[in-house]
Amino acid sequence: MPAVDLQVNPANEIIGTKGLSVRFLVSGDSSNGSVATFELMVPGAQRLPAPAHSHDHYEETIYGVDGVLTWTVDGKAIEVGPGEALCIPRGAVHRFDNNGTRDAKALCIVTPAAIGPDYFREAFAEFNAAAGGPPDKVKMMDIMRRHGLTPAAPPST
């Protein structure tokens, strides 16, 4: 069996803007594509600047570490706090928001590792280009689609 260069947090890259960030702990490159794991940090009263979305190629499990995030999955609001876990199945339309005043942190586990740091680098570049305003919706949806996410249709009014 070939030697494997095992490392703690082999990805360990922080990608973000204005307090909203992800810190990759393990990417698909270091797990033979089996898992991607990252911390998600969300400031108090922060809404997700990207559209709700689904993904058909992986499950995403959210584990609450600090604060509370509200995940809306197929229209149902679910609060995830410290010590709680939520598995978002393939195809479920979802998004998250921090509706509280306390910063929140969650551990996100993607199986298999069908998404990685490249998606977040591109998405956060678009958030930063918006200079505090909403990101360009067409560009965001293009970035999402190229990385295997399916943007949800806007809610009907």
Rank of each mutant, 00 (worst) to 15 (best):
P112Q: 09
G75Q: 12
I14N: 12
G67M: 03
S27Y: 01
H147V: 06
S156R: 13
Q7C: 00
S156K: 14
A92W: 11
F124I: 05
A77C: 07
E60K: 02
A36M: 04
M41K: 10
H55M: 12
M141P: 01
S156D: 13
L20N: 05
G75R: 13
V138D: 15
P155H: 10
F96E: 05
H94Q: 13
W71H: 13
N32A: 15
G133R: 11
G44Q: 02
A130G: 10
T157L: 11
N98K: 06
E60W: 01
A125R: 12
A123N: 01
V65L: 15
N99C: 11
A106Y: 02
F38K: 01
G116N: 13
E60M: 04
T72Q: 14
L107E: 02
G44H: 04
A92V: 07
I62D: 05
G133Y: 05
F127R: 04
D5M: 09
G83Y: 04
V26S: 00
D118A: 15
G33D: 09
D56R: 14
M141Q: 15
R90C: 09
R145A: 14
L25G: 01
G133K: 09
I88R: 02
N9M: 09
L48T: 07
T70F: 06
V80S: 04
R102Q: 14
L107G: 02
K76M: 11
V65D: 03
I62L: 06
A106K: 08
V110T: 11
R145I: 03
P89F: 01
A153M: 13
C108H: 05
V110F: 02
N99Y: 08
E122P: 02
V68I: 15
G44R: 01
P2M: 00
A3I: 11
S34E: 14
V35H: 01
F24Q: 03
P51M: 10
V80K: 02
L149A: 09
V73F: 11
R121C: 06
G81T: 11
E126Q: 14
P112E: 09
A45R: 15
A129K: 14
L6R: 11
P2W: 00
T150D: 12
M1T: 09
D5T: 11
T157C: 04
E126F: 05
K139R: 15
T37K: 04
T37E: 07
D56T: 14
I62G: 02
N128R: 15
A36D: 03
A131T: 07
N12H: 14
E59S: 09
E84N: 03
R90F: 00
L40P: 03
H55I: 04
A113C: 05
F124A: 06
L25F: 00
G64K: 01
G81F: 11
G91V: 09
A92Q: 10
G91R: 07
D103R: 08
A114S: 11
